[in-house]
Computed example of a mutant assay.
Amino acid sequence: MKKFLFVATGLAFVLGGCSKQGDLDLSSGVGVNVVRSGCPIVGVPEGLGDITIFRAGGAQNFSDLDVVANITEVRGSCNDSGAKIFSQVDFDVQARRYDTRAAREVSLPYFSVVTQGGSAVVAKRVGEVTLRFAAGQERASTRASATAYVDAAAANLPEDIRRRITRPRKAGDADAALDPLAQPDVRAAIARATFEHFVGFQLTEDQLRYNVTR
Rank of each mutant, 00 (worst) to 15 (best):
F13Y: 14
G118N: 06
G49N: 03
E128R: 15
D23K: 08
S141D: 03
L131K: 03
A193G: 06
K2P: 10
V44K: 09
K2C: 09
E128H: 15
E205N: 14
G29S: 07
V212C: 10
V122C: 00
E138K: 15
I85V: 15
Y110W: 13
A120W: 07
Y210A: 12
R169Q: 12
R75A: 14
S145M: 12
K84I: 07
S112Q: 04
V106W: 07
V186C: 06
R167N: 13
V150R: 01
S28V: 11
R162Y: 08
C18T: 15
R55G: 12
S112P: 08
G82N: 14
V68E: 04
A177E: 12
S27T: 12
D80N: 10
T9Y: 11
A171H: 12
V93C: 02
S87F: 06
F62S: 11
Y110T: 04
I53K: 10
R187Q: 11
P158G: 03
K84Y: 00
D185Y: 08
R164D: 14
Y149S: 13
G43I: 04
G17M: 07
A193N: 08
F195E: 01
S107C: 04
G127L: 06
G49Y: 07
R187G: 11
V89Q: 01
D99Q: 10
R104N: 12
T72G: 04
T166Q: 14
N156L: 13
S28R: 10
I161H: 02
A189Y: 03
G117I: 00
A59Y: 00
A95F: 09
V30Y: 15
T72Q: 10
A8I: 02
A182M: 12
T52G: 05
D80R: 10
T100R: 12
A193R: 09
L65T: 05
R209C: 02
S63L: 02
D175Y: 00
V121F: 11
K3L: 09
S27K: 08
N211I: 08
V7E: 10
E159H: 11
T204R: 07
N61T: 09
K170F: 14
R104A: 13
S63R: 11
G118L: 10
V199P: 02
E105T: 15
A193V: 01
I190C: 01
G117N: 05
I190K: 05
V129S: 04
Q207A: 11
D90M: 07
N70T: 03
R55N: 14
G200F: 06
A171W: 13
S37L: 02
S107T: 11
A103Y: 05
G29N: 05
V122M: 08
D25Q: 04
D160R: 01
G47Q: 08
S28Y: 13
T9H: 12
A140L: 02
A120N: 14
G22H: 09
L157Q: 08
L181N: 05
R139M: 04
G127C: 04
L181I: 01
A148C: 07
G10S: 10
A153F: 00
V122G: 05
G82T: 11
V121W: 07
Q202R: 15
L24N: 06
A155D: 00
N61G: 09
A171M: 14
R132G: 03
G200I: 08
